[in-house]
Write a protein that binds this DNA or RNA. Structure first.
Lengths: 181, 181
DNA sequence: GTCTATAGTGGGATAGAC
DNA sequence: GTCTATCCCACTATAGAC
């Protein structure tokens, strides 16, 4: 049995007001990025003062952990659907991954550009997000990590504008999928 | 002819005092990371006050551009050497890349985790850093980008502690090199 | 549930004297 | 080349009144 995490950000049944705050935080994140996600600006968006948020959520880190958990859940949905709807799962997963990151670039950064506070996440959500990729890798977790590394590298370098303008990234994605097939 | 960059961070022949400041900044970066690299802390390390730095370097961004340019030059040296010393360039480049990132993790983050201020870099240095990889990709720049994405993904996910503890990352690197061979 | 007030910490950058 | 003084910005978080 896996022990229960020692720190929990928010009750399993999240309180209604906390729910509203998290939703506003998600909007703020999507619109202004991780740097724009401050407690002051979040409060401003809610029409309250920053200290009031702390009556509903214990810390900024806990708030981020909720957003990250929801991001993993959304990715898991998309990944499971991509596998269901395709008979060539690996490139389908790649396309879904790229689409997810590009649809929510700031959420994607929040989810990936830091160490994971695993104790604060929804239990089991990281494993659920990983499962479709591991299955596409024929059950080999090391190979699954290679796939993830390629996809993450492609996505984050594209988001950061690191590839030159003329780059044919569609072709590069296909080359990667072919290499790992 | 390529036009000269419109903004230059530091004269080509860098002044001696500026040289000392950049060296101290490199030490500070390596020891305390990108977040620890502030003008105040840098000044403290030099035994002066922060405003004095601005008599030698125009901005923090210019200082970072010098550090990034030097990082590219160091990587280029290592990459060129790895290709010279091996008759299987692709895995050798991968090992060199991983070693470079792990030897200078904070410099590596500074070099990769943001948009590149290309106008402020040493002219030509980005192309020189990319050349060995493009040659290992048989001259195909799109394939070279796939290689880079895989390597960067592996490195940055490892630096961020995103892979589970039991991961066999040596094996994953080999799998990646084999896939792209 | 929200408020005011405030603590404490950090940051980049500039003006002008010496 | 360095200094003091200062500006402005930002942030998380807490105490205690209402």
């Amino acid at each position: 049995m896996r022990p229960e995490p020692t720190v929990r950000p928010v009750p399993d049944e999240i309180a209604p007001r906390a729910r509203e705050i998290v939703s506003a935080a998600r909007e703020l994140l999507e619109e202004e990025g991780t740097e724009g996600l401050s407690m002051r600006r979040l409060a401003e968006r809610l029409g309250i003062r920053a200290p009031s948020i702390y009556k509903h959520l214990p810390s900024k880190q806990a708030l981020e952990a909720v957003l990250i958990s929801e991001g993993f859940a959304e990715w898991a949905e998309l990944a499971e659907q991509a596998v269901r709807d395709s008979d060539d799962p690996l490139p389908a997963l790649g396309r879904a991954y790229r689409r997810f990151a590009q649809s929510h670039p700031h959420l994607y950064r929040l989810m990936t550009e830091q160490a994971l506070a695993r104790d604060m996440l929804t239990p089991g959500i990281e494993a659920r997000a990983a499962r479709p990729v591991i299955e596409a890798a024929g059950g080999d977790p090391d190979l699954a990590r290679a796939l993830w590394a390629f996809a993450h590298g492609m996505v984050i370098l594209e988001l950061d504008g690191r590839f030159p303008d003329g780059s044919d990234l569609d072709r590069t994605w296909r080359q990667g999928a072919a290499a790992f097939a």
